[in-house]
Design a protein around this nucleic acid. Structure first.
Lengths: 182, 182
DNA sequence: TTTTCGAAGTAGACAGTGTCTACATCAGTT
DNA sequence: AACTGATGTAGACACTGTCTACTTCGAAAA
């Protein structure tokens, strides 16, 4: 495995184990067994390295989603929704990185392609499920994706903790799906 | 105005003008005209100062929401939803800071109180609007809040830019409200 | 009135960060 | 055989948050 790929892999491991704050350029280099300046031979800077890591995150998210149980379009859509939230809650650091535009470069072509692919796949599922009265399925997809995203984000943030009321993410997701799927 | 309050105000201005990356302890101190160590006489560290700034953000959000047009409960709820998204898009840096748990300390009592107050107010509006069949209004409120939050976050992130489809936040919000409000 | 004492501000240091530059190494091509 | 470009190293720089000594100064206590 080339140094470049090893840096990405090491960064992903460090990210999963220690969190976003730990993925420092020097820390990654040390964990990969190279000098602190070596990463700059393969990436223009930290943002480019982390963008590569985030791209892998989007790809894995898409892979999960693609291999879904063979069922009706409605069931496939709800499965994809659960999948999104599960991914976020199961790999919080990766999920956070994927949407931290101060750490990654959203204009990075590979990253933009991977995130667009996730949305397009999702939009196709929404369109197949039908049920929206006349409005553009892609618009419904954007709205529903945002709802799932906010759910994940809010729960990772602290989940309304401290508030007088602390529901489980599953129950809130059920309400969300109920609202959208008639 | 005491130094403590001036630091908070200066930080808020710096935040609005230069973004989250600019609210550095030393930068705030310089902008406030004090030495780089002065802030630590009033705050235990950066997190505590930024928590105070974020608390003001939540308070302002609540203030906006409270003074709503005198109309039916349904209209007040939709107005609150628009208000949330408008706040996020209109003051992106503040909104980002409010949910960056690596920069602030969510356990800070004043901050926790302010954010809980926002949720409680919102839950009350949802309950007053009615229309949810049997499910706990607070659970519906959590789900709807998450939907709004995700909408704002996703648009600030880059708004599905690059995707083959780029709807306006208003249109997506309309779909969201449509889904929840029967 | 004088003394004391604690709060507030300053300046310097320290480890850590990302990034730049000069230098070494070394395989592959001309 | 000589050159060249890619790869890696080590050092430096400016910047960050935080810690520590040192000053200043106003108010309370004697």
């Amino acid at each position: 495995m080339g140094t470049r790929q090893r840096l990405i892999t090491t960064a992903a491991e460090l990210l999963a184990e220690e969190g976003v704050a730990a993925v420092t350029l020097r820390g990654i280099a040390k964990a990969a067994g190279v000098s602190h300046g070596a990463p700059l031979r393969h990436f223009s800077g930290r943002a480019e390295l982390l963008s590569a890591v985030a791209t892998e995150g989007f790809t894995e998210l898409l892979d999960r989603r693609t291999r879904l149980p063979d069922a009706g379009p409605r069931e496939r859509l709800t499965a994809a929704c659960h999948n999104y939230v599960d991914f976020a809650l199961g790999r919080p650091a990766m999920f956070e990185l994927m949407f931290r535009r101060d750490l990654i470069d959203p204009a990075e072509p590979a990253l933009a392609a991977a995130s667009s692919a996730v949305f397009d796949e999702f939009a196709a599922l929404v369109a197949a499920a039908g049920g929206h009265r006349g409005t553009d399925p892609r618009l419904v997809a954007a709205s529903l994706w945002a709802a799932l995203h906010g759910l994940a984000q809010l729960w990772l943030w602290g989940g309304l903790a401290g508030a007088s009321f602390a529901p489980s993410p599953e129950s809130a997701l059920a309400v969300t799906l109920d609202a959208y799927l008639d």
